[in-house]
Amino acid sequence: MSSPDTNLKKQKRRHRGPLIGMAVVAVFAIGLILFWIGEVFVTAPGPESEPAEAATEQVSPTELETGTVDVPPEAPVEEVAPGDTDVEVEQ
């Protein structure tokens, strides 16, 4: 059903403000998303940066075998017996 009293000029005038407001909000949201994506690309590490694991000091296998590796006090430590079957050893 259509409205019996339609005045298109009056309806255009009444809807102009809300439509402009919605357009401004949509442009602001798109600008905010583009800014966010740009910040992600700018702050991302590049290929020339060193990964976090490679930045730490590497421990040689001989140091691991002889027990000269410094362990931080907050690191979890579990004692293992030589014949323990629950321990998997990679070789």
Rank of each mutant, 00 (worst) to 15 (best):
G31P: 01
E50H: 02
A81I: 00
I37E: 10
D84C: 04
S60D: 08
P18A: 02
H15D: 04
L19G: 00
A26M: 08
E90D: 13
Q11I: 12
P45Q: 13
R16T: 03
E50F: 05
F41R: 15
P72L: 10
T62Q: 14
D70F: 03
E48R: 12
V80P: 01
E50A: 04
W36E: 10
R14C: 01
H15A: 12
L32N: 11
L32K: 04
E65F: 05
A55F: 05
G17R: 13
A52E: 11
N7T: 02
M1D: 00
L8K: 06
D86N: 15
P76H: 08
V42Y: 12
P76K: 13
V69G: 03
V87F: 12
V25I: 11
P82W: 07
V80S: 02
F28P: 00
G83T: 10
E48Q: 12
A44K: 15
E53A: 12
V77L: 14
F28S: 07
T68L: 04
L34N: 13
G83A: 10
E48N: 11
S49T: 11
A54V: 07
E63K: 13
P4C: 00
E48P: 00
G83R: 10
Q91D: 13
A44D: 09
A54H: 08
T68V: 05
G67S: 04
L64P: 00
R13D: 05
E50P: 05
P73K: 08
P82V: 06
A23E: 03
V25S: 07
T68M: 02
V89P: 01
T68E: 15
E50D: 07
V71A: 08
A52W: 10
L32T: 11
T56H: 11
T6V: 14
E57K: 07
A23R: 10
P45T: 06
G31A: 11
D86R: 15
E78Q: 09
T56A: 13
R16H: 07
V71F: 11
E88V: 13
T62E: 15
D70I: 02
A55W: 05
D5P: 00
V40N: 14
D84E: 08
S60R: 15
S60T: 15
P45F: 07
A26N: 05
S2E: 12
F28K: 00
A81S: 14
V71G: 02
D70A: 11
D86L: 13
V89E: 07
V80Q: 02
E65Y: 07
G31F: 01
P51F: 03
P18C: 03
A54L: 13
V80N: 02
S3C: 04
